[in-house]
């Protein structure tokens, strides 16, 4: 039982250590993999803008980033 309890404690302790070690070296994807062409997940500057709501329809939510869309809105097909 002592060996089992020690194993659980050690597993948690090593897990916490791993958490701190990994987190200290972690960067956001837009920082780590940024290119001059496209930036992913950088709020406010990325292609979809800060108010993107995830809906696959062009409309008011994207106005801040792209301006008012002109003409008839497209209707992307859902896969």
């Amino acid at each position: 039982m002592k060996a089992f309890a020690a194993a659980i404690i050690a597993a948690i302790a090593l897990g916490v250590l791993a958490m701190y070690a990994l987190t200290s070296n972690q960067t956001f994807a837009y920082q780590a993999f940024a290119t001059s062409g496209a930036r992913v997940s950088e709020p406010g500057v990325n292609l979809v803008g800060p108010k993107w709501n995830g809906l696959p329809v062009l409309g008011e939510a994207n106005d801040a980033a792209h301006g008012k869309a002109e003409g008839e809105a497209s209707h992307p097909k859902r896969s």
């Binding site: 089992f4 194993a7 659980i8 050690a10």
Partner: peptide, 14 residues
């Protein structure tokens, strides 16, 4: 022995 069981259970629980 105790260390063998410790290693086994740490691996097993994980």
């Amino acid at each position: 022995n105790g260390f063998e069981r410790f290693a086994h259970w740490m691996t097993a629980t994980c």
